[in-house]
Each structure stands twice: as structure tokens, then as C-alpha cells.
């Protein structure tokens, strides 16, 4: 992985200095072991900051979403994309919120990223200085020495079920393709489907009762690309600001419906939620239903493919109002 980080630095420096792009979006390392955050490097040769670009097991934030803000201000932007970032990019493209020719994509094959909560739960967080990836293993680095463990035990759940670890769209691929070995992603949805309506309502009511209405799930989502979100419009205020279950349900249900058929299953909503609401589970229920109703469809894989919920056909056999 170290190698990949070096390639990223070189390629970013090159495209900036040649004037091919005026902004590179990648990741940078923070001071603590779990901190790898979006980095924005601009100007000729990136003002020497391209050297701060990194690639490690914590480069989880989906960068595609930043194009919504950055692209209008720039001539051309280079973006490093993992599999899930690439899906997000395609969805933004399909939603007509980005122009392909204004973006250069550097593809990164991803072997899964590490969930800091799993590291903490295993009691490995104390005094931890760095986590390195070594093939199928993780190396935990402490003052006192190193400790190795199976990487798979510490990956985000969303990474364990990832079906597109290799970017589906790129201008240049950096590195060898990663193996594709996803676990079944609809397992928890199937569990939910076994519940009766009351049980399911109670389940989601409990989950949503923790919501603090921070809107992180919306703001991290590459499918939430509206120029102005209905929930931000002060007048009329559609969503009451009281943190009450009914309001939260209204918000969360609208949010889920609005990304249905466009959710690329990147799982950022679940990752960013500070109170562990399994939003990806809700989105996956929609994906599963869409697959069953309209045939298999993976949002973000092919922006030219007709999207099931936004395609109008005059010979649609079902009436609009039919339930």
C-alpha cells in the first residue's frame, strides 16, 4: 500500500504541474491512527502539498460527493476513487450534477477498510500508533512493538459485503485489481423481512429514536445531490425541528425513498451516523425490492443504463395509482 501512496503523490504532482487539473482530491493522514480524511490540493504543483497524500486502511470517506461543491468552481478536478467512490461518481454523473470531461479519475483497487470501532472493541486501541496493511493481515504498531491480526476481522461491514472493490470507471488505474469476494449483503434485510409489520415498526422506531437529526447521513451521501434539500428550506418548513420520533421517521423515510434506485450502496450513511442507525440496511431493502420488481440493477455501475424508478415508459402495464 505504501507503494500506492507514492504513486498517488507523483501522479497528483504531475497533473497539477502540467496544468491538467486545478484541484486534486485525495486523502491525507491526521494525527491519530484512525484519521485519514479528504484532502484538497490545488495550485501549480499543489504548493508542495501533494506529498501529504496518503492511502491506508482508513481512507474511507467517499470523495465523489465533493464534486458537487468543487466542480462548478474549477476547470478540471482529479479524484482518487475506490470502488465505492467510483459508483458514487457515476451516480452523480447520471443525476447530471457533474460533467465527465471535467473530471480525471485515478482508480484505486480496494481490499477493504478498517472500522476503528472494531479495533477498539477488540481492545487493541490503547496506545495504538499506526495500523498497517500487509496482505490479508493488519499490523498494529505500538511503542512496545507490533501485533498482527487477520484484516477481515476488522473491516467495515460494508466492505465485507462490497461487490465492487475495483472502480467501475477510471481514466487510469493504479495498482492490481483487488479480489472480489463479497459476503451476502441482504442477510440482515432477510432477517427484517421475517418480522411482521408491528415488529418491523418497533425495530425501526427504536433505531430512529436515537437519531439526533444531524443530517450527516444525507450530507455524506453521493445520491443526495439536490441543489437545495427540501429539509433545509426554512419556509415552508416541511420537517419540524422538534426531535420527535414522528418527525425523524418522516425525515428518514423521505431520505430513503429519495435515494431509492440511486443509492450506490457505499454505506457512508451508516458509517457517519454517530448513533449507529443501520441506514444501509434500510437502503438495501429498497435495492432488494427493486431487484425483485424490475430485475437486477446496481446504481452507479453504468450511468447510461436506464434507472428503474426514473424511467417512464408509455407502455407501462401498471397504472400510476395502482398499489
Amino acid at each position: 500500500m505504501k507503494q500506492l501512496a507514492e504513486i498517488m503523490k507523483d501522479i497528483a504532482a504531475q497533473s497539477l504541474s502540467r496544468g491538467e487539473v486545478d484541484l486534486v482530491i485525495g486523502w491525507q493522514k491526521g494525527p491519530l491512527w484512525w484519521q485519514s480524511y479528504p484532502a484538497f490540493i490545488e495550485g501549480n504543483e499543489g504548493n508542495g502539498e501533494t506529498g501529504s497524500l496518503t492511502w491506508d486502511s482508513f481512507c474511507v470517506p467517499n470523495l465523489s460527493r465533493y464534486l458537487l461543491e468543487e466542480l462548478p468552481e474549477r476547470k478540471k478536478v482529479a479524484l482518487f476513487v475506490k470502488g465505492c467512490d467510483a459508483l458514487g461518481f457515476n451516480q452523480i454523473l447520471q443525476d447530471k450534477r457533474a460533467e465527465r470531461e471535467k473530471v480525471v479519475l485515478y482508480g484505486i483497487p480496494c481490499t477493504g477498510l478498517v472500522d476503528p470501532d472494531k479495533v477498539e472493541s477488540a481492545g487493541l486501541g490503547r496506545g495504538l500508533l499506526e495500523v498497517k496493511r500487509d496482505g490479508d493481515e493488519l499490523v498494529f504498531v505500538y511503542d512496545s512493538g507490533e501485533q498482527k491480526a487477520q484484516a477481515r476481522d476488522f473491516l467495515y461491514d460494508k466492505c465485507l459485503t462490497c461487490r465492487y472493490p475495483n472502480p467501475v470507471v477510471y481514466d487510469q488505474m493504479l495498482g492490481e485489481a483487488a479480489p472480489v469476494q463479497p459476503e451476502e449483503r441482504f442477510e440482515s434485510v432477510q432477517e427484517l423481512e421475517k418480522m411482521d409489520a408491528d415488529e418491523r415498526f418497533a425495530y425501526w422506531a427504536r433505531q430512529f429514536s436515537r437519531c439526533i437529526r444531524c443530517f450527516a447521513c444525507r450530507n455524506a451521501c453521493p445520491a443526495c445531490s439536490c441543489r437545495e434539500c427540501i429539509f433545509d428550506i426554512p419556509e415552508p418548513r416541511w420537517l419540524g425541528k422538534a426531535n420527535e420520533l414522528s418527525e425523524t421517521q418522516f425525515y428518514q423515510i423521505i431520505r430513503a425513498y429519495h435515494v431509492a434506485g440511486r443509492c450506490v450502496d457505499c454505506g457512508e450513511c451508516t458509517r457517519v451516523c454517530p448513533v449507529n442507525i443501520p441506514l444501509q440496511e434500510l437502503n438495501r431493502k429498497f435495492i432488494k425490492d427493486i431487484n425483485e420488481l424490475y430485475g437486477e440493477y446496481d446504481a452507479g455501475v453504468d450511468p447510461e443504463q436506464e434507472a428503474p424508478l426514473v424511467t417512464y415508459k408509455t407502455d407501462d402495464p401498471a397504472a400510476f395509482t395502482e398499489s
Binding site: Y37, F40, E70, P274
Partner: peptide
């Protein structure tokens, strides 16, 4: 250098023990 990566969500303010801004609304 700070703001570009900000998602504009309210996590930091709502989980901060010292943030105290509020709104007033009718229902």
C-alpha cells in the same frame, strides 16, 4: 484548508458539551 472537507452536518455541534445554539418553533 479546514472547510473544504466539512460535510456541513451537525454532528460536531450536537455532540459538543458546550454548543448551545437553539431555535424557536411552533407546532
Amino acid at each position: 484548508q479546514f472547510f473544504r472537507r466539512c460535510l456541513g452536518c451537525g454532528i460536531c455541534t450536537y455532540i459538543c458539551p458546550t454548543c448551545h445554539c437553539f431555535d424557536i418553533q411552533d407546532y
